[in-house]
């Protein structure tokens, strides 16, 4: 029996790459950002604040999951050196035959970091923002004066445009992989699996751990906003 006959053909193995918590994180974040954009535009700040707190929970969870989660979610697995990124761009990015990464590729990893970082800045600015009517504000705006709160609000507004830029870049990259590389990245973010010719050694963290960490993040966010903030 040759090695090849062990599998019934190319791409025959269903390889699990994204765990459920990571996928839920991704799609919940999409829904929350849409909600935040809408409620911000409509100035329904009650909803805006709630959705913002939910984003804090997600960011905290993702941070924890980046250390304690499944292989593909761990920062150690996808935050690569500039040299690795340069190598990927040179050899693989435009090469349809290049090996597919199970998880983030070296360039995509940094795009994830950029989005998480900008989103964190965005949330932090929102915490101190004050609206022009002086009536709606982030829970920590009581710590700053009116001018500083207004500055935070303006930066909050501008950072959202940066965020839109990064998200547009993310979508263009996904489309590039789909159309040019013939590599569908969207389906695995929904189903969690890819068809692969060979399995790879990935480890997956338990859902119980994810639920525990999520509860912890909810508790921490609640405590900080409720006990230290004033909304």
């Amino acid at each position: 029996m040759s090695e090849r006959s062990e599998v019934s053909g190319p791409d025959s193995i269903r390889q699990r790459i994204w765990d459920l918590p990571t996928r839920l994180f991704h799609w919940t974040l999409v829904a929350l950002i849409a909600t935040l954009w809408w409620s911000g535009e409509q100035r329904t700040l009650g909803w805006h604040r709630l959705a913002g707190y939910a984003v804090i929970v997600l960011l905290l969870f993702r941070l924890a999951w980046g250390f304690a989660g499944s292989s593909t979610a761990r920062f150690r697995s996808f935050v690569r050196s500039p040299r690795a990124v340069a190598g990927y761009v040179r050899r693989d990015l435009f090469n349809r035959a290049a090996a597919r990464h199970h998880g983030h590729n070296p360039l995509g990893g940094w795009s994830v970091i950029a989005m998480l970082a900008l989103l964190s800045v965005q949330v932090a600015l929102g915490m101190f923002a004050v609206d022009v009517d002086g009536i709606e504000s982030g829970p920590f705006s009581y710590l700053v004066d009116f001018d500083t709160g207004r500055l935070a609000a303006r930066l909050h507004h501008q950072a959202f445009n940066l965020l839109l830029g990064l998200m547009a870049f993310h979508l263009v990259a996904v489309l590039f992989y789909l159309l040019h590389r013939r590599h569908n990245l969207i389906a695995p973010m929904v189903t969690g699996t890819v068809r692969s010719s060979k399995g790879s050694e990935l480890s997956f963290a338990s859902h119980r751990l994810a639920a525990f960490l999520l509860m912890l993040c909810v508790g921490l966010t609640w405590a900080v906003v409720r006990l230290l903030g004033q909304a």
Binding site: V130, V132, Y142, F146
Partner: peptide
């Protein structure tokens, strides 16, 4: 700006 600042401070007091 002074009105906004005063109103914010009043609001902060109420929110406390």
């Amino acid at each position: 700006k002074e009105i906004g600042g005063a109103f914010k401070s009043i609001n902060d007091e109420i929110k406390s």
